[in-house]
């Protein structure tokens, strides 16, 4: 199965890409999908938003409109075809 990630503007600027489709084995959960994204961040400015192959806790993960934290991702089942938004809080004022 596959899921599609979209990154909000600031995060996309750091990572160097705005969207990505990742392939997953049928039993894989959100945790596995996020690890693939964390791997894609390596070598970019977004690498600082990863730790031990996982995404930084300040990245908000929104799966089909429902938000969770990267550290809750192991509990989230995927069925394939989900649109997953990754949102980095911003601070411009």
């Amino acid at each position: 199965m596959e899921v599609r990630f979209s990154l909000t503007k600031r995060l996309a600027e750091l990572a160097g890409f705005q969207s990505e489709t990742v392939q997953l084995s049928p039993s894989e959960r959100l945790d596995g999908a996020l690890r693939q994204v964390a791997h894609r961040f390596q070598g970019t400015e977004a690498a600082e938003l990863t730790e031990n192959g996982r995404l930084h806790s300040s990245i908000l993960v929104v799966v089909d409109g429902t938000a969770c934290r990267p550290n809750q991702a192991a509990d989230v089942e995927l069925k394939g075809g989900e649109d997953i938004d990754l949102l980095l809080p911003i601070a411009g004022g």
């Binding site: 909000t8 503007k9 600031r10 600027e13 809080p89 911003i90 601070a91 411009g92 004022g93």
Partner: peptide, 10 residues
Amino acid sequence: DAAMYDDETH
């Protein structure tokens, strides 16, 4: 809390 970056806003 209100924030912005480029044309992105929270």
